[in-house]
Amino acid sequence: MSCSENTNATAGDPLDELDDAVAAAAFRRLVRHLRHRHDAQNLDLMILSGFCRNCLADWIREAGAPYDKEGARAVIHGMPSADWKARFHREATDDQLAAMAESLKKNAPAS
């Protein structure tokens, strides 16, 4: 799974005016919510929103977090990703994989 960067940043976006401490608190709440909701599979998140826990891990690395890929995933999952996968991951159906592929097309920047 992968998620393309599509920030849709615009001049004067009120999100850019949000205090970093407030944004960080909201981000931590989102991550803790996802840690609690193991029933929301990464694939489900990808189908509905075009991003998942692993994308969040990639994004914190891209933002400068001092982790390798696995370290960043452990931060987001709240445990090593292999442990999370062994405990909570369900295999995807062909229909789910097709739906994810369609969802990811929406992540591509507009031409």
Rank of each mutant, 00 (worst) to 15 (best):
A65K: 04
D58K: 14
H36F: 12
V31H: 02
P66S: 11
H36Q: 10
C52W: 02
E62P: 01
V31L: 08
V22P: 00
A21N: 06
P80D: 10
P66E: 08
C55A: 08
V75I: 08
N42G: 10
H36M: 09
R35D: 08
N42C: 08
A74D: 12
I76K: 00
R32M: 12
G78K: 01
M79Y: 04
C52T: 04
V75A: 12
R53T: 11
Y67R: 06
L34H: 11
A72M: 09
A63H: 10
A24L: 10
D68K: 09
L45R: 06
G71M: 05
A21E: 10
A74L: 07
E62Q: 13
H33C: 11
D44T: 11
W59E: 04
H36V: 02
R29G: 09
N42M: 05
L18W: 01
L48E: 13
W59A: 12
S49E: 14
D68V: 04
L34P: 02
N54F: 03
A23W: 01
G71Y: 00
M79F: 11
C52S: 15
H77E: 05
P80S: 01
L30W: 06
A63L: 12
C55S: 10
D39F: 12
M46W: 03
N54G: 13
M79W: 07
A40G: 08
G50D: 05
A63N: 04
A40L: 15
R35G: 07
R28M: 11
I47P: 02
R28N: 13
I60G: 08
R35H: 08
L48H: 13
S49Q: 12
D58R: 14
A72E: 01
E70Q: 13
A57T: 07
L45T: 06
I76D: 00
M46T: 11
A57I: 03
M46S: 10
W59N: 08
C52D: 12
K69N: 14
F51W: 15
E62V: 13
R32G: 02
P80I: 01
A23M: 05
L48M: 13
A26I: 07
A24W: 07
D19K: 07
H36L: 09
F51P: 01
N42R: 05
H36K: 15
G78E: 00
Y67A: 02
L45V: 07
A57W: 06
H77A: 14
L43H: 03
C55T: 12
W59G: 05
A63E: 09
A72V: 04
Q41N: 09
D20V: 08
